[in-house]
Design a binder for these strands. Structure first.
Length: 939
RNA sequence: GCUUGUGUGGCGGAACUGGUAGACGCGCACGACUCAAAAUCGUGUGACAUUUGUUAUGUGGGUUCGAGUCCCACCACAAGCACCA
C-alpha cells in the first residue's frame, strides 16, 4: 500500500532542493509556453476548492508542455493589497506588511503541499515596493500622456467604507464588500480615460480565444451604440440642445423631448408657472440614490418645463419635459421622445397624454407590382367574462380570421371597425381598449385576381354585453361566427391578423423594422436606409451628425484607503499638479499611527510629514493621499513574472517579446469585466506606446467553474457548514487524490457539486495503479500485443484531451488502460513508463515515486512525453451496427477492406435482419464505412 | 425584460464534422477470497416487458434512410446586464 503523506513530503522536498521547476527565461532555444493562474489575494483562510481546480489545470498543462520540450513559465504570486490587511491595520495599529507576509507564507506553504510546479524565484506581490514601483511608473506614463487625469464627476460614494467605489464594486446600490449603502455625489476624481480605448478593446475581442460569454460581457460593458446627435433649438430662447439617438429615422414621430434632471439648461428655460414643480422634482431626484431610482422603475415620473423645442426636420414645436428616466451620465443627458417607437417614451406619453405619432409600419405579406391601395381595419374583440375571442371561421375560404374590412370613403377607421363588427357578427356593445399600430399588408385576392397593398389599422375591443342585432351579410360572405379560447386563436394564420393579435396582446410601442410613413423624404424606406438618409439630411442641414456612443466611462483610479499603491502626484500650492520623477519611485507607503480615514478623508491624510513635499526648485505642495484601486497591480503583473528582479525597467523588452502573450490563462469568471478589462486597457496603452509586444495579453482564457457543496449549494460565507476545505482533504486522502478527484469531477468550466464518495473513488484508483505498476512481476513483455492498441489509443486520447483541458475524459481513458492491464495480467515496461509519465502530470508525487522505482534517478518532469503511432490506432476488424429502418437489429464485425457490397451481403445474411425484412420491399441500403449499415424497407 | 449558457440513468458525467445513447467513476446487486467483516478481484446494472421486443437524452413540432447532436416554438435552471435613448 502506498504511503501518500511520506511520498508527497519527499518529492516536495526534492523539487525544492533541486530547483526542479526553475525557468531560465533567457533560454530561447526551446519554444516557450506561458501558463498563468489568476493570482490570489493571500487571505488568512487559505486556499479553497475552486483555487485547487484552476491551479491543478494549469499545473497539468505546464507539466505536459515541459515534457513536450517547451520552455515553460508557470509562475505564482499575490495580489496582496486589499481590505483585510487594511482592517487588520486599523484594528491593531500595526503596518499591514507583517500580516500580509505571514499570509503569503501560509498560502505558499499550502500551494507547495499540493505539489504545484511554480518557479518561486519568479514570485511577485503587488504590495512589494519593488513591484509597485513599476505600477506607479506605468501610472505616471498614463498621466503624462493624458490618459489619467482629474475629473469633476458624480461618483459612487460609500459612507460605510469611507471611500469612492467603481461601478463593479457596487452591487444593487450596496458596496460589494460589506454591503453598505452607496450614494451618488459630485467629487473631483483621479480617472483613467478608458473610453479612448473602447474601439480597440472591442476589436481585440475578435482575435482572442476567450469564452463567448465573457467577451459578450465585455462588449456589453463597453456598450457601444451607433446613432446620431440631433440639435433642437429652443423656442423663444437663443439656445439649443443636442440629443443622442439610435433611431433618428423616427424624428418625424418625436412628440416631446426630455432632459435629465441634472441638465444644465433646466433653470434657464423653465417658465415661471412651472418653476416650483421643476425645482421640487429636481430635489426629489437628487436625494434618491441609484438604487431608489431603479426601484421606482415601474412608474415613469417627470414634469413639464413650460418650454418648447423645435423639431429641426419639420419645425414642429414639441414640449420639453424633465424626467429621471433620462440619465445625465449617458449620451448628452437629453433625448427626443418618440412614443410610437420606443417603449419608455410610450409609457411616459400614455401617462402624460402626449400625442403618439406612428411613422413606421410593420410590413406583412409579400409586395408585388401593380398593387391596388386600400385602407382597412382588423378588430380583435375579447369577452373578458368568458375569456374568449371573437373570430370568423371562413372554413376553406380563408380559415380563421378576426373581423376585417375595407374602409369606405370619409369613414374613420374606428367607425369602420364598429360597422364591420355590427354587420358581420351583430355585436354593438363594445369598449375600445386600444388603437393598435397600423400595418402595411400585401396580399393577393383570388376572387378578384388582384394584388392589394393595404394600410390596416388594428383595434382591440372588450365586449361589454351580449347585445346583438341582426347581421347584414353580402352573399359571398359565408363564415360562421365563433368565440374561441386563446389556444384556438393560434389557428389564425393570416399574417396581418396574426400580427394585429400580437399587438393586441402586447400593447405598446412598435420597435421593430418596417416602412416609413408620414416622414416626407423617408417615406417608403426601411429602418436602416432611413437612418442613413436622415443622418445625411441632418449633416447637410447642420443640425446633427453621425455619432457613436459608449456606456464605458472614466475608470475612477483613486480610493480613500491606506493599503494600496500611493499615487506619485503632488498638489502644488499654486494649484498645479506635479508628477514625481522616475528616480523618486517607488513612493513608499508610510507607516501610520492611525490607519483609519476620518470624515471621508483618506487615511494617508494622517501621515503629516510624508504628505509635505518640496520640489527641487523649492515649490511646496501636498502629496495625493488617495491610493490606487485594487486592480492596479493586477493590470500588468503578467509582465513582471517574466523579469521580476529588474530594477531598470518593468520588464526587459527582449524577454517580453519572447514570452508574451500568455498562452493560457485560467481564473474565475467573476473577473470578466473587472481585472480582465483593466489589464487589457493597460496592455493596449503599453502596446500603443511600444512597450508591450502584443495587442492582447491573454491569448486563451478559461474560467474554472464553481465547486458547490455536496448538496449543490454554493460554498462560502453563507453556508460554511457545507464548505470543503482542501487542506483537510489533502491531509486525509493526499494531494494527489485531491488533484485527481477535482480533475475527474467534470468539465473544467462547469459548476459541479462536491462528492466525498468521488474522493474515495479517486483514491482507490491511485491505489489500484500503485498496486499493479509497483508489482514488478506484472511488468513484462509476455502479452505486449494485447495492450499495444489500447496503449497507443490512450496516449493519443490523453495528449489530445490535455491540450483542450478535457481532464475528466483523459482520466477516464487512463482508467480504461489500467482496467485492461488488470485483465491481461501484465504490462510491458515501455507502456508502464509511458502511462506513469502521463499520470504524473495530474498526480506528480506518485508519478515521481513510481518513476524512481523503475530505476530512474532523475525527476520525471523533463522526460520525453510519450508518443503514439497511428498505425496501431486503426482497427482492421470493427463491429458495426445493422439497422432496419433506422433501428438497430444486429451487429457484426467487418474488415476495413470490405467493400460496400460485401458489407451489404453480410448484413442480409444475419438472422435477426432477415426476420425484419422478410416479405418486405427493400427500398435502399445505406452503408457508412466503419459505422453503420442501414436497410430501408417498405411493407 | 434583454444577453449568454445549460437541461442525458439513483448520482458526477461520456458521445468526433448527424451514424450501435449512457464511456469512465460513484452507488447498488451478485459471485470469488474469508470463520466472518473490511479491503481486494470478477460479473451485472436506463426503464418496462422479460428469448428475438417496446421505449428512452426538458416539452411539442420539423428536416433526414438515421437526430442527444441540425431547424422552429415553448418550458425550466444558472450567470450577467437592466430606464444606455
Amino acid at each position: 500500500m502506498y504511503n501518500f503523506s511520506e511520498i508527497e513530503k519527499k518529492w516536495q522536498k526534492y523539487w525544492k532542493e533541486n530547483h526542479t521547476f526553475k525557468t531560465d527565461v533567457w533560454d530561447f532555444s526551446k519554444p516557450k509556453y506561458y501558463v498563468l493562474d489568476m493570482f490570489p489575494y493571500p487571505s488568512g483562510v487559505g486556499l479553497h476548492a475552486g483555487h485547487v481546480e484552476g491551479y491543478t489545470a494549469t499545473d497539468i498543462i505546464s507539466r505536459m508542455k515541459r515534457m513536450q520540450g517547451y520552455n515553460v513559465l508557470h509562475p505564482m504570486g499575490y495580489d496582496s493589497f486589499g481590505l483585510p490587511a487594511e482592517q487588520y491595520a486599523i484594528k491593531t495599529g500595526n503596518h499591514p506588511n507583517g500580516f500580509t507576509e505571514k499570509n503569503i507564507a501560509y498560502f505558499t506553504e499550502q500551494l507547495n503541499a499540493l505539489g504545484f510546479d511554480y518557479d518561486w524565484d519568479k514570485m511577485v506581490a503587488t504590495s512589494d515596493p519593488k513591484f509597485y514601483k513599476w505600477t506607479q511608473w506605468i501610472f505616471k506614463n498614463l498621466y503624462q500622456d493624458g490618459y489619467a487625469k482629474y475629473v469633476d464627476m458624480p461618483v459612487n460614494w460609500c459612507e460605510g467604507l469611507g471611500t469612492v467605489l467603481s461601478n463593479d464594486e457596487v452591487i444593487d446600490g450596496k458596496s460589494e464588500r460589506g454591503g453598505y449603502p452607496v450614494v451618488r455625489k459630485n467629487m473631483k476624481q483621479l480617472c483613467i480615460d478608458q473610453a479612448s480605448f473602447a474601439e480597440e478593446l472591442l476589436e481585440g475581442l475578435d482575435e482572442i480565444d476567450w469564452p463567448e460569454s465573457t467577451k459578450e460581457m465585455q462588449r456589453n460593458w463597453i456598450g457601444k451604440s451607433i446613432g446620431a446627435h440631433v440639435t433642437f433649438k429652443i423656442k423663444d430662447h437663443d439656445k439649443e440642445f443636442t440629443v443622442f439617438t439610435t433611431r433618428c429615422d423616427t424624428l418625424f414621430g418625436a412628440t416631446y423631448c426630455v432632459l435629465a434632471p441634472e441638465h444644465e439648461y433646466i433653470n434657464s428655460i423653465t417658465t415661471k408657472e412651472h418653476q416650483k414643480e421643476v425645482e421640487e422634482y429636481k430635489r426629489t431626484c437628487a436625494s434618491k440614490s441609484d438604487l431608489e431610482r431603479t426601484e421606482l422603475n415601474k412608474e415613469k415620473t417627470g414634469v413639464f418645463t413650460g418650454a418648447y423645442a423645435i423639431n429641426p426636420v419639420n419645425g414642429r414645436e414639441i414640449p420639453i419635459y424633465i424626467s429621471d428616466y433620462v440619465l445625465a451620465s449617458y449620451g448628452t443627458g437629453a433625448i427626443m421622445a418618440v412614443p410610437a417607437h420606443d417603449e419608455r417614451d410610450y409609457e411616459f406619453a400614455k401617462k402624460f397624454h402626449i400625442p403618439i405619432i406612428q411613422v413606421l409600419e410593420e410590413v406583412t405579406g409579400t409586395p408585388h407590382e401593380n398593387e391596388t391601395k386600400k385602407k382597412s381595419i382588423v378588430a380583435v374583440v375579447y369577452n373578458p367574462k368568458t375569456k374568449k375571442y371573437l373570430t370568423l371561421n371562413w372554413h376553406d375560404k380563408g380559415g380563421r380570421l378576426f373581423i376585417g374590412g375595407t374602409r369606405k370613403e370619409n369613414e374613420t377607421a374606428l367607425d369602420c371597425a364598429l360597422r364591420e363588427i355590427k354587420e358581420e357578427t351583430g355585436y354593438t356593445d363594445l369598449e375600445l381598449q386600444e388603437t393598435l399600430p397600423k400595418i402595411n399588408h400585401h396580399y393577393y385576392a383570388y376572387n378578384k385576381d388582384k394584388y392589394f397593398n393595404i394600410e390596416s389599422t388594428g383595434f382591440f375591443f372588450h365586449l361589454k354585453s351580449e347585445n346583438q342585432q341582426t347581421t347584414q351579410l353580402d352573399e359571398d360572405e359565408s363564415f360562421t361566427v365563433e368565440w374561441v379560447d386563446e389556444e384556438t386563436v393560434q389557428e389564425v394564420k393570416d399574417a396581418l391578423h396574426q400580427k394585429t393579435y400580437q399587438y393586441a396582446k402586447n400593447q405598446g410601442a412598435m420597435v421593430g423594422d418596417g416602412v416609413h410613413v408620414h416622414s416626407e423624404f423617408l417615406d417608403g424606406l426601411y429602418k436602416q436606409d432611413a437612418i442613413d438618409t436622415m443622418i445625411k439630411w441632418l449633416e447637410e442641414h447642420n443640425c446633427g451628425e453621425r455619432k457613436v456612443n459608449y456606456k464605458f466611462r472614466e475608470w475612477i483610479f483613486a480610493r480613500q484607503r491606506y493599503w494600496g499603491e500611493p499615487v506619485p502626484i503632488v498638489h502644488l500650492d499654486n494649484g498645479e499638479e506635479y508628477l514625481l520623477e522616475d528616480s523618486e519611485l517607488p513612493l513608499i507607503l508610510p507607516s501610520l499611527e492611525d490607519y483609519k480615514g476620518h470624515n471621508g478623508k483618506a487615511p494617508l491624510e494622517n501621515a503629516r510629514d510624508w504628505k509635505e513635499y518640496t520640489t527641487k526648485t523649492g515649490m511646496h505642495g501636498v502629496r495625493e493621499t488617495s491610493t490606487m484601486p485594487g486592480s492596479a497591480g493586477s493590470s500588468w503583473y503578467y509582465f513582471r513574472y517574466i523579469d521580476p528582479q529588474n530594477d531598470e525597467v518593468f520588464c526587459d523588452p527582449r524577454l517580453a517579446a519572447h514570452w508574451l502573450p500568455v498562452d493560457l490563462y485560467i481564473g474565475g469568471q467573476e473577473h470578466a469585466v473587472g481585472h480582465l478589462m483593466y489589464s487589457r486597457i493597460w496592455n493596449h496603452y503599453l502596446y500603443n506606446k511600444g512597450l508591450s509586444p502584443v495587442k492582447e495579453p491573454f491569448k486563451k482564457l478559461v474560467h474554472q467553474g464553481m465547486i458547490l457543496g455536496e448538496n449543490g449549494i454554493k460554498m462560502g460565507k453563507r453556508y460554511p457548514e457545507y464548505a470543503i476545505d482542501p487542506k483537510n482533504i489533502a491531509k486525509e486522502y493526499g494531494a494527489d487524490t485531491l488533484r485527481l478527484y477535482e480533475m475527474f469531477m467534470g468539465p473544467i468550466e462547469a459548476s459541479k457539486p462536491w462528492s466525498m464518495n468521488g474522493v474515495v473513488g479517486a483514491k482507490k484508483f491511485l491505489e489500484r495503479v500503485w498496486r499493479f505498476f509497483t508489482n514488478f512481476e506484472n511488468i513484462k513483455d509476455t502479452d505486449k500485443d494485447k495492450l499495444t492498441k489500447i496503449y497507443h489509443q490512450t496516449v493519443k486520447k490523453v495528449t489530445d484531451d490535455f491540450e483542450v483541458l478535457g481532464f475528466n475524459t483523459a482520466i477516464s481513458q487512463m482508467m480504461i488502460f489500467v482496467n485492461e492491464c488488470y485483465k491481461v495480467g501484465s504490462c510491458p515496461k515501455e507502456y508502464a513508463e509511458g502511462f506513469i509519465k502521463m499520470i504524473s502530470c495530474i498526480t506528480p508525487h506518485i508519478g515521481e515515486e513510481m518513476w524512481e522505482l523503475y530505476g530512474h534517478n532523475q525527476t520525471i518532469a523533463y522526460e520525453k512525453w510519450p508518443e503514439y503511432d497511428e498505425k496501431y490506432l486503426k482497427e482492421e476488424e470493427k463491429e458495426i451496427a445493422v439497422q432496419v429502418n433506422g433501428k438497430v437489429r444486429a451487429t457484426m464485425f467487418v474488415h476495413q477492406d470490405n467493400t460496400d457490397q460485401e458489407i451489404e451481403q453480410k448484413a442480409f445474411s444475419l438472422d435477426n435482419v432477415q426476420r425484419h425484412i422478410q416479405g418486405k420491399e427493400i427500398v435502399k441500403v445505406i452503408v457508412i464505412k466503419g459505422k453503420i449499415c442501414n436497410i430501408v424497407v417498405k411493407d
